[in-house]
Amino acid sequence: MKSDPGLYDYLPYTQRPKIEWPNGAHIAFWVAPNVEYYELDGPSNPARQPWPKPRPDLVPYSERDFGNRVGHFRMMEAMDRCGVRGSVSLSVALCDHHPELIEECKKRDWEFFSHGIYNTRYSYNMNEAQERAILQDAIDTVQKHTGQRIAGYLAPALTHTERTMDLMAEYDFLYTCDLFHDDQPFPVNVKKGRLISVPYSLEMNDIIAYNQHFVTPRVYRDWLKLNFDRLFEEGKKSGTVMCIPLHAYAVGQAHRIAAFEEALKYITGHDKVWLATGREIAQYYYDNYYDETVAAIADHKKKYPPRVETGGGS
């Protein structure tokens, strides 16, 4: 085990190349609905059990199924009304189980990225061949069902190995959503090729807010607005990214959706907000800031050489 994954270098928030988003936007705003399939009785991984109680653990299983049957449309229609396209964090097996849902997202020109095969199959303990197989499965499945070559990755249930990022770069992914260290995109250190992190967010994630912080729908709404207000203000100096990761089974409950839509209306009611997808943000960053940032990292390292190894020594 390592004490630091070595995935990124240190470049202080205040010392970076200035980011300017398209049309002078201060903030790149994206919404990432997790469209997930959990198995009722799938195999166990020695590192983690899918369900806390004896199977069928029907409360958590069926509440997730609610997202696909009921909540998804509530969430999607609220996004439609605010002109927001989703970047779908997809359990790719859902293409097989619920193709109608995929069609609805396709119709709206949403982006799809991989969130593993099922959210009950974890990467822990996979050997390299197995991890390659799930990446290839995700690429092939999404290509077949949507025509899109996936560009982004959020590991299934946020489970990783030490090689996950290197493999993503090797398979030509543009961005990872797995790192929570920043409010701006940033280069990820990989063995070969390039990869960046695009800010996803655990803090703005509905299921974390609801089921870890136990907030009410109105407090969640207020968190979203506060997060936006500050990032928008700071984005005047250098562009920031705000992401709202969603789960239709949480935000799509009847007692929660209206408060969420209020926040979404508030955010999209501002000028100088770039309504983007994960891929669009990543591509724009590669095209305009990647090289400049890599140079700034090297420069900073020279001026402030760390006395211990950080960032993988690249």
């Binding site: 195999p43 991984n45 020695p46 590192a47 095969i117 199959r121 303990n125 996979m126 050997n127 197989a133």
Partner: peptide, 13 residues
């Protein structure tokens, strides 16, 4: 917990 191996059946669906 991360030092086990997984049978290939873990990738059968």
């Amino acid at each position: 917990q991360h030092t086990h191996s997984l049978p290939d059946s873990y990738l059968r669906y």
